[in-house]
Amino acid sequence: MAVSGQSRIEEQVVVFTLRDQVYGMDIGSVLEIIRMESVTRVPGTPDFIEGIINLRGKVIPVMDLCRRFNMPPSKISDSTRVIIAEAGGVTVGMIVDSVSEVLRIPASSIEPPPAIIAGSSIEALRGIALVDEKMIILLDLGKVLYEEEKRQLEGFGK
């Protein structure tokens, strides 16, 4: 994830959807993908934190990626999945609308995020890949986890 596209010829990416948009996450940071299960809400956490779940005896926080990117909350359906991923030593679950496939993407087809889009979610983007006419938005997991919090903390300071 930390290694930029240039140093590798191709990347393996877990492809998932959020509200009809296609996203990708480096497979190296994905531990497993599970079905949605009962989530315990934790008071006092940011909106995008859905709560905590029990993953085989471990308590793991789960976030709703839709909310994280300021979209309306996910609708829980049969295709809803939780991607369990690790970044910066923490393990978190991310609720996504569906997981479709694992793709090999040539590094050459990855472009940096367009500079023109600004906003809270943009900094969590690592780049955009075009594969077979499909546009896949690649996420930087470390930033998904921490940028928003940092922003909120800075907000408190003001």
Binding site: E37, S38, T40, V42, P43, G44, T45, I49, G51, I52, I53, N54, G57, V59, I60, P61, G89, V90, T91, V92, L145
Partner: peptide, 21 residues
């Protein structure tokens, strides 16, 4: 866990017999 950190009013979590937290 460190991601959620110290929450006001809470000291941790536990897993119930039915698997819920």
């Amino acid at each position: 866990g460190s991601y959620l950190g110290q929450m006001t009013g809470l000291s941790g979590a536990t897993i119930l017999g039915d698997g819920r937290v």
